[in-house]
Design a binder for these strands. Structure first.
Lengths: 148, 148
DNA sequence: CTAATCTTGACTGTGTGAGTCAGGATTATG
DNA sequence: CATAATCCTGACTCACACAGTCAAGATTAG
């Protein structure tokens, strides 16, 4: 039940960009050094963030990366989805609208599916609710552990 | 962000036991056939459930497995923890009380940690809240998607 | 005694995650 | 224009964990 390092690194990197949003474009080298992420590996990761529109790149000398949107408009769910694909604790849950119940062959016998659906929905809700702005300001959303 | 097949199979198996709770001990062979789990693999998995006290075994001919507690007293969190270890979306979060901040070397710079903590806490809360009884009765807890 | 069952540990193979390497494309700057 | 700084791309390696198998032993009902 683990995130891969891509999601972890990716969030670190984009959070760093959010903190430096007022500066010009930040070279990958700088992010990598600051967050202690292997530079070449970070390149791969940031490609996916760019493709998802979460960061934008400026090529050439003095280039680098900037946030694609203001920090309030980027949430952790987007980052994780861009880097790890859809959140789905078990295979069955990958959006296969075509094959309605193809996975758990036993159709209705698979009583456990709802458990993973519920888990997934909760995870998505949590991640979608946290923005980069929340992270860099240390929003109470993150610090106090409110149980509804 | 995936569960391994152990957790998936394990929950299926123990849910099956919960449904057959009134029967005598159920042989692994029967569970494996019913839930379409490789028998030898299920053996491995169920060992961990037994060690955690979630199921009990009856050895010898006419033996098999039974629930270790009534279905209301076994929750999904226990099952997952028994089979996959502690739930922790990123390494940093494994209970290392000894090395307080050893992982994210940058100590307070690691602003993203709280995100994963929050995620973990939420996941644990969800899983701990769902019992086998909820699963076999199709509790509304699982079916309606209440957003607080 | 024997067959049914759990119990244990070693074993294998495949895939993915994590990271590296090498080279090409783009652009600011002097 | 030349050069250096940067992004961009794809192929590559390596180790490890996951998923599953195999084989043999211990227990017990009948």
């Amino acid at each position: 039940m683990k995130l891969s390092s891509r999601g972890h690194y990716g969030l670190m990197a984009i959070t760093y960009l959010a903190q430096k949003a007022s500066d010009g474009p930040i070279p990958i080298k700088v992010i990598a050094a600051a967050e202690e992420i292997p530079e070449q590996y970070l390149e791969q990761i940031i490609v996916d963030l760019r493709r998802a529109g979460l960061v934008t790149s400026v090529r050439g000398a003095r280039g680098g990366y900037k946030l694609g949107h203001p920090p309030e408009q980027i949430n952790v769910g987007q980052v994780v989805k861009a880097l790890e694909g859809e959140i789905a604790p078990v295979e069955c849950l990958h959006s296969q609208e075509d094959t309605p119940e193809a996975c758990c062959s036993k159709t209705d016998n698979c009583k456990t599916k709802v458990v993973w659906e519920k888990l997934r929905d909760t995870m998505v809700a949590v991640l979608d609710d946290i923005t980069l702005h929340d992270i860099i300001t240390g929003s109470s959303k993150l610090t106090l552990h409110a149980e509804s």
